[in-house]
Design a binder for these strands. Structure first.
Lengths: 192, 192
DNA sequence: TACTTTTTATGATCTATGTCAAAAATAGAT
DNA sequence: ATCTATTTTTGACATAGATCATAAAAAGTA
């Protein structure tokens, strides 16, 4: 039976039969790209969602002329400019690979077809977004009252490797702190 | 044909036939409660989702012994302690009415049954969460780099009446700023 | 109307983190 | 290996907003 990281990801939430697996297979693509590859550009619609099979990525936008990382992603996670993907409006974010990576992609249209034709996929769609919401909510809510150091440690606990592999500046802007402050935090003795 | 605010809310996303409307009707309740009524208590599971037909509500938790408002809700919006509702884990948040209110409620179990038996409802469930995600993402992302005043003005532009009706302290903690700072902001000349 | 409680305002500090500038370290390229 | 560009570190200084303390105002209550 055929498989790939995306199918594993879906099966983590709902059970798929052989026919549906075959169908998903036929509508998604696997590609390898170099670090720095822009999967989605701001000003365009996000027409695909990507699952990172190997490597890492980030979404970012510009604020006062400076890049701000809005989220980081690693192996086994779905990436796209979500608000554009869901609403169909143009994206205010860019999505970029932060390492040489292998990703599985599926288009918005194909995903909608799967939702329409397979109740299991509709259910998967709901469960996936529910999970995203809970996670995002947890993170941002935490960030609200944490010191720079606490935020950094929260991130480290959730994305230990990526946090260390990705540029300091990207991580700093994701945490909403300056590069200099993060550099100083890293020099401090760990754990308060 | 029977109707209520919850059914209107659902029909805003998907078309319902008469039989499904009747079914939804039979599984939800309409109640009126006084200001201060706790719909969900932290430490318990959030077993219902509520639609505010009239009035307003907020979710809050405790941080360093102080109440922190995590979100405010007004007429036409769904309220619950979402992460508990979705995951089934106990809630870290309380949900409280901030004015005398009328709310429509439906239980988690009934909602799951609707999802299971009606593809339209499964689709509604997905679309509703997608919308929530986009909105929350927009807000928190904005908050990250805004000054206290900018955050307050963003909130005002989205929830003009509630922001003024609800306690200053609730609003301040929602914005992640101190009560004193918000009081000072309100005294400043508007719009930068 | 008087009394109590809750909410909002104001003044005086204090501090974490931002900003600017420049050096040091690291990674890439030829 | 050498040169160049990028990333990270370090220092000096500035500031938004926190905290603490108290007063004023508003809302409930009898």
């Amino acid at each position: 039976m055929k498989t790939n990281a995306l199918i594993d990801f879906i099966q983590d939430k709902v059970r798929l039969d052989a026919e549906l697996i075959e169908t998903i297979h036929s509508v998604c693509h696997i590609d390898s790209w170099k670090k720095g590859k822009l999967l989605i550009r701001s000003g365009k619609r996000a027409r695909h969602v990507y699952l990172i099979q190997k490597g890492s990525a980030r979404t970012f936008y510009y604020h006062d002329g400076k890049e701000v990382t809005s989220w980081i992603y690693s192996e086994g996670q779905l990436v796209t400019a979500w608000s554009s993907f869901y609403t169909g409006m143009i994206s205010s974010e860019n999505t970029e690979l932060t390492e040489d990576s292998t990703v599985v992609s599926i288009s918005f249209e194909q995903l909608q077809l799967l939702y329409k034709n397979y109740p299991k996929m509709q259910e998967f769609g709901r469960l996936m977004v529910e999970e995203q919401l809970v996670f995002i909510d947890y993170f941002y809510k935490g960030f609200m009252f944490m010191t720079a150091k606490e935020k950094y440690e929260l991130l480290l606990s959730y994305f230990p490797e990526v946090t260390l592999r990705v540029n300091l500046g990207h991580i700093a802007s994701f945490l909403g702190i300056s590069q200099e402050t993060l550099s100083r935090i890293r020099k401090m003795p760990a754990r308060k």
